[in-house]
Amino acid sequence: MRVVSVQGIPQEEKGSYVLAIGKFDGVHIGHQAILHQARSLAHNQSELAVVSFTPHPVYVLTGDERYRTWLTPERDKSRLLEQFGVEALFLIQFDAAYANVTAETFVREHLKRLGAKSIVVGADFRFGRGGQATVEDLKSLASTIRVPVHVVHHVEENGVKVSSSNIRDHLLAGRVEAAEALLGRAYSLTGVVEHGDARGRTIGFPTANIGGIDDYVLPKNGVYAVSVDTSVHEPGRNWFGVANLGIRPTVNGLSRRLEVHLLDYSGDLYGKQLRVSLLRRLRDEMKFASLSELTQQIRQDCLMARIMLGLSSLQE
């Protein structure tokens, strides 16, 4: 998939595109409905492209630190979009100047330059200066450049609209199963194994310290059953494991870390890129009186993860 960084007025594209427009943070089941509609319109006559934005517009406009991070940073967003048949991603660099682009300019100049043949958006899409233009405005403006607009109604789960904000809320509360239902896949974070303090190895539970995940929305601190892809660029090598996300209070940790123990794995992971998918929440992070108590709890966590993942049973 071709990823094009767009700053200011886009370069004129020679191709013809069905453009799906939105932030697409999470590429959740609501976004997937938009992509399916766009894919059906593209057929073999034009390419499917996504127009998205970075940094998050809410962060640029309000400075809200919650939106400094993403459910799917750019590297994950592009990977997932490609899996849904997207052939080009036009990533608009959103800043204060771009926030002042009028609705008319966005449609008649920017989208036209991006080769729009058709446009697909969600029903709550807003655009233009102040985000005041609606899908009806989009239809009206796009008609002046003879481009049809297709509006996809939002997807609901239990009567509630699926949204990136709802998924963020689930993750911050530790409800990874609920987040998975809305994403259509387990929530995952991709990072590189860094050297830590090697304390896990000394107590019989070696862990991989995952770095480079500061741009993700991090779930509530705690212990999780996980699936780990140990070969991100060659999918298919997966291991179940137990992950701790938090500050490690028993050893007086100060920084927040994601540490993963892979069940039944032996080998050197330092420097490797891993994708950690959060499957089930096991418990809150706790402070123990001693390393011995911590070791016993980790043993119980591993047993519970094995049971939940079908690797063991209470009868064994």
Rank of each mutant, 00 (worst) to 15 (best):
S140R: 13
E13W: 05
A88S: 13
R39G: 04
V120E: 03
V193L: 08
I247S: 11
L311C: 00
K112W: 12
F53H: 04
E12R: 09
Y265V: 11
K139P: 01
V176K: 04
L48R: 07
L61C: 03
A49Y: 06
E82G: 14
F24A: 02
L309H: 05
M1W: 04
A225K: 07
R66Q: 12
V58S: 05
R113K: 15
A208M: 08
D64F: 10
S118L: 05
I34K: 02
R257W: 05
Q32K: 13
L19F: 03
L171S: 07
D214C: 03
G174S: 08
D169E: 15
V60D: 04
V232A: 13
I210H: 04
V193M: 09
D169I: 12
N158D: 14
Y270Q: 05
Q32C: 06
R146W: 01
L172K: 13
A181T: 15
L48F: 13
A173Y: 07
A123Q: 09
L279G: 01
E157D: 10
G8N: 11
Q83I: 13
S255Q: 13
L171E: 08
E82R: 09
G22K: 01
G271S: 09
G271E: 07
E156R: 02
Q32P: 02
L114M: 15
L48I: 13
E234C: 12
D64N: 15
A289N: 00
L303F: 02
G204F: 07
K23Y: 10
A289H: 01
G128N: 06
M286F: 03
G212K: 04
V135R: 01
V101S: 07
Q11W: 02
E13M: 04
P206V: 15
A103I: 13
Q11L: 09
T69D: 07
A20K: 01
R168Q: 07
H153K: 05
V6L: 06
L189W: 03
G159P: 10
T72A: 05
I34E: 01
D64G: 06
G191F: 02
G63R: 08
R39D: 10
L71Y: 01
E293A: 10
A198V: 14
V107W: 10
R68F: 15
H195G: 11
D95N: 15
T230V: 15
T202V: 11
L262M: 09
V3I: 14
S165M: 09
S46I: 12
D264S: 09
S143G: 00
Y59T: 09
R175M: 12
Q132P: 00
N221R: 11
I21L: 11
G200E: 12
E194I: 07
R168C: 10
T105H: 15
V107N: 11
V226M: 09
G204W: 07
H110T: 14
K23H: 08
Y265R: 06
G15C: 08
S312W: 12
R68V: 11
Q83T: 14
R281K: 10
Q273G: 02
T207M: 12
R126P: 05
L189N: 04
D137N: 08
R129M: 10
